[in-house]
């Protein structure tokens, strides 16, 4: 099982993602510069956090047209796993691979914290190692994490179990229905504001992100290639 981590100008969590895959799963993982258009050699793609293209215009709006996104669309279409973390989530929304849009936090501040979350769907390849409605702690660090979608989309997300992570306690950004992470209808494209890659060892303050990575490997072993 081979991972790709696309790197855009302004990405800054790419190395964290690469290290998380190496240290938790011991699987091959490559950084892929955004001018590369093909991701055929990979089974999973992680779009990392950061400030791609300086967050100009709207977060993620310019990265969406990078050549590497062709490979991301193709991977998503083929049912391979695509994860967007923080800025990666914003890119997936702008790209239309996930429904909704990101707004600036309702308090207008950059929020950097350890956040309590609940795993709302533990039947996904990304979450199967978590317990039912398990409460976990992951770091957040963003100013544009205020997820928005219209009511019709929200009820569809809720009905289909597409809300994967929800903020517990105080909502750190004002997102609709306390949403912290969602998955597409097919269940192979995940977007989330919290950073699982920054919480894979106890010394990091939490190791709760590790199960997201181990879930994928377990699914891979059980079901073979995606």
């Amino acid at each position: 099982m081979r991972f790709a981590v696309p790197v855009f100008p302004g990405s800054n969590c790419d190395v964290d993602c690469i290290k998380a895959v190496r240290e938790v799963l011991d699987r091959p993982v490559d950084p892929v510069w955004h001018l590369e258009g093909k991701l055929d050699d990979y089974d999973a793609v992680i779009l990392p956090g950061g400030f791609s293209y300086g967050d100009y215009l709207r977060s993620g709006s310019l990265a969406r047209f990078s050549p590497v996104m062709e490979g991301v669309y193709e991977a998503a279409e083929k049912g391979k796993w695509v994860i967007g973390i923080c800025n990666g989530f914003q890119i997936l929304l702008e790209a239309g691979l996930l429904p909704g849009a990101m707004r600036v936090n309702d308090h207008l501040q950059f929020r950097c914290d350890i956040q309590k979350l609940r795993v709302e769907n533990d039947r996904l390849p990304f979450t199967q190692d978590y317990g039912r409605e398990e409460e976990i702690f992951l770091p957040i660090a963003h100013k544009e994490g205020n997820y928005y979608c219209d009511e019709e989309t929200l009820s569809r997300l809720e009905q289909n179990g597409q809300v994967v992570f929800r903020y517990m306690g105080e909502n750190p950004n004002g997102s609709v229905a306390d949403i912290a992470g969602i998955v597409n209808e097919k269940g192979n494209v995940l977007g989330m504001m919290p950073h699982p890659e920054r919480a894979v060892h106890a010394w990091m303050g939490s190791a709760d992100g590790a199960k997201l990575f181990t879930s994928m490997l377990h699914d891979w072993r059980e079901n073979g290639a995606a």
Binding site: L57, R58, S61, F65, L93, E94, G100, A101, R103, Y148, C149
Partner: peptide, 8 residues
């Protein structure tokens, strides 16, 4: 295509 996000 780019300048506005029709969702919001």
């Amino acid at each position: 295509k780019l300048l506005a996000n029709p969702v919001i």
